[in-house]
Write a protein that binds this DNA or RNA. Structure first.
Length: 292
DNA sequence: TGCCAGGCTTCAC
DNA sequence: GTGAAGCATGGC
């Protein structure tokens, strides 16, 4: 089921309309799947995607069927790539047919509107290596340090003035600056980041094209990723879910572990969620972390 | 100030 | 194969 449509293109902005409640800016960008987006008042979001700056603003409109979003982006960017990045082409309707527990229904209701993003593979690998045994604010600040130190500096005209930002670093930039890498607050993960960058640099096609093929199964991706030092089951599942768009992967972190103990007597059968286990995981994670 | 964070590796046993 | 210790750093 298609949930969006291009509404209009005006003054350099592209407006898209999305079925109501299917895309929530705040939940999508603050749910812990990405670390470089900033959301203001649940209405405007700024991010850097594949080295390009994007602003998405939710418009006030009276339509009771669609939400309207204004997308402001570099003119060289294909709007359909952004739509794909936002996960708006993915069909989440299967979960509506699953017999959910009361707890799962609460999590789904609370978190509804999260889209699982299609993030860059290399950025996702490095980001989730950094995420291990770290807090989300610390992850964000560490990644920003990396980007400022090693990412390409770019400038765009934004709201009438020059805006400076940094792309996520290329593998080679991280490899060539090992000594400076140590100064970014990575701690004991410095070696992991360095060697992951080296692995990727040595064979980018393997990570992008080979493992990124649609027909490759999630098990294969998880096994391959865990060959890298510093990538265990949890980080591999995050990379598969947020980078390779494998919506059946199910990262088990400390929060999800507690839920499994508390709500499922220590064992959860994720096959019930079909190929959307990862989406359900993200609903649960967001619910656990942010519910009042 | 001390605690702890979207875990992983290493090393006993 | 299983379980526990040790791990750098900085946000709160």
């Amino acid at each position: 089921m298609k949930i969006y449509d291009i509404s209009k293109i005006e003054n350099g902005y592209t407006y898209i309309k999305v079925l109501k409640n299917e895309f929530d800016l705040g939940k999508t960008f603050d749910c812990g799947q990405c670390f470089r987006w900033r959301v203001i008042n649940n209405q405007t979001a700024y991010g850097i995607v594949n080295g390009k700056f994007i602003e998405i603003r939710k418009e006030i409109n009276n339509d009771n069927k669609f939400d309207l979003f204004r997308i402001n982006v570099d003119s060289t960017y294909d709007i359909f790539d952004i739509i794909d990045y936002l996960g708006l082409n993915d069909d989440y309707s299967y979960l509506k047919h699953v017999n959910l527990t009361d707890y799962e229904k609460r999590a789904l209701k609370y978190s509804y509107g999260i889209r699982i993003l299609h993030q860059d593979i290399f950025e996702t690998i490095i980001s989730f290596i950094i995420s291990q045994r770290n807090s989300i604010p610390k992850i964000k600040s560490t990644i920003e340090k990396l980007c400022k130190a090693f990412g390409e500096t770019r400038i765009i005209k934004f709201n009438g003035q020059d805006c400076v930002y940094h792309a996520f670093p290329n593998p080679i930039a991280l490899i060539q600056n090992y000594e400076n890498l140590k100064d970014c607050g990575l701690g004991y993960r410095t070696e992991y980041v360095y060697w992951a960058a080296m692995s990727y640099y040595n064979n980018p096609a393997y990570f992008k094209e080979r493992l990124g093929r649609k027909d490759i199964d999630t098990e294969k991706i998880l096994n391959e990723l865990q060959k890298m030092n510093g990538v265990g089951p949890k980080v591999a599942n995050c990379i598969a879910l947020f980078g390779y768009n494998k919506l059946d992967s199910f990262p088990i972190d400390t929060w999800i572990s507690k839920v499994i103990e508390r709500e499922y007597n220590g064992h959860i059968d994720i096959s019930r969620f079909g190929n959307l286990a990862g989406l359900m995981q993200q609903y649960i994670f967001y619910y656990e972390r942010y519910k009042i």
